[in-house]
Simulated scan of single mutants.
Amino acid sequence: MTRGNQRELARAKNQKKLAEQNKGKTKTSATSLAAKKEADAEALRQKIAAKAAKAAEAGGGSGK
């Protein structure tokens, strides 16, 4: 059992490192995460619609 102290020191060092990594991060709630996903999905829908409108204006059709 010569490594008992080493393990404890490594564990404490790792906990300190993880605490530093998570220091500036904010935790998001499930509702804010769902709102972000919905906002991203809406932005993607608008982007696809704009691309389709541009293709229809050029007379390209479906583009396949």
Rank of each mutant, 00 (worst) to 15 (best):
T2F: 11
R3V: 03
R3N: 13
R3P: 04
R7P: 03
R7M: 07
E8D: 04
E8Y: 00
A10P: 00
A10H: 00
R11H: 02
R11C: 02
R11L: 11
A12D: 03
K13M: 12
N14G: 05
N14C: 13
Q15Y: 07
Q15P: 00
Q15R: 11
Q15K: 12
K16T: 02
K17Q: 15
L18M: 11
A19G: 04
A19H: 03
A19N: 05
Q21S: 09
Q21C: 08
Q21M: 10
N22W: 05
K25A: 07
T26P: 01
K27G: 06
K27N: 10
T28D: 00
T28G: 04
S29A: 01
S29L: 00
S29K: 15
A30N: 13
A30R: 02
T31S: 14
T31R: 02
T31A: 09
L33H: 12
L33A: 07
A34N: 12
K37W: 07
A39V: 15
A39T: 09
D40M: 06
D40R: 11
D40F: 00
D40C: 03
A41H: 15
A41R: 11
A43T: 05
R45P: 03
Q46F: 04
K47A: 14
A49F: 02
A49R: 14
K51P: 02
K51C: 01
A55Y: 06
A55S: 09
E57S: 11
E57W: 05
G59F: 00
G60I: 07
G60V: 08
G60K: 15
G61L: 01
G61E: 13
G61Y: 03
G61D: 13
G63T: 01
K64W: 13
